[in-house]
């Protein structure tokens, strides 16, 4: 029984990664590299790296936190790569081999060199991640419609054509999504 619980705690679900975490990771990456194409590539690389490192997943952190740690490393690698030709690369890693964290992900102990100054920027990024987290809890179709309408700014007609729904269905879905989001974000942000 204990063994079974332990095995479940260590389990990864890569087949759900794109649906559950892609947008969350994408927002994190865009905020740091300021380029949607590069950010998309970094998210894809993060998923591949996650698959390759799956055997190292110890279940200490949530799946998403673990993927963010990998992405953080990918962002560092990205900057190191583009700066290396100019001899500008400088990445400081303070790995404490004597602590209890020995053998853990290095990324978890790396001071983020791309942290931004300014409380409002940080707050807006936290807000964005909080919204993405709440969106990831919505039913898939509601999340899809909300994203297309609110974030991508698509027209009602285009969304209806793409998803094969009528405008009335669309507004019901958006309304339900927004009501759930208000509840999800209520305590911290309202």
């Amino acid at each position: 029984m204990v063994l079974l619980k332990t095995m479940v705690a260590y389990e990864l679900h890569p087949e759900k990664w794109v649906d559950q975490y892609a947008d969350y990771l994408f927002n994190y990456a865009v905020a740091r590299v300021s380029d949607a194409e590069i950010a998309k590539d970094l998210v894809q690389e993060t998923f591949f790296a996650g698959l390759n490192s799956a055997k190292n997943y110890k279940g200490d952190a949530a799946e998403r936190t673990w993927l963010i740690a990998i992405l953080k490393r990918k962002v560092i690698d990205h900057y190191r790569k583009i700066n290396s030709k100019k001899g500008k690369a400088e990445v400081r890693i303070n790995y404490n081999a004597s602590s209890d964290a020995e053998g853990d992900w290095l990324e978890e102990q790396v001071a983020d060199p791309f942290s931004k100054d300014g409380a409002s920027t940080i707050e807006n990024e936290e807000l964005g991640m909080a919204i993405q987290e709440c969106i990831s809890k919505l039913p898939k179709k509601q999340a899809m419609v909300f994203n297309m309408k609110t974030i991508q700014g698509m027209s009602t007609e285009d969304i209806c054509n793409e998803l094969g729904i009528n405008p009335s269905n669309l507004w019901v879905m958006i309304h339900r999504a927004r009501t759930t989001l208000m509840g999800c974000m209520n305590q911290t942000w309202f």
Binding site: P14, V18, D23, N27, V43, L51, N124, I131, M144, I151
Partner: peptide
Amino acid sequence: KANLNTLSESEKESMKKDLE
């Protein structure tokens, strides 16, 4: 305020196929 970004459904589908 959050300046949200999202991947399109086609980008996610392509990502899923590559991952699979």
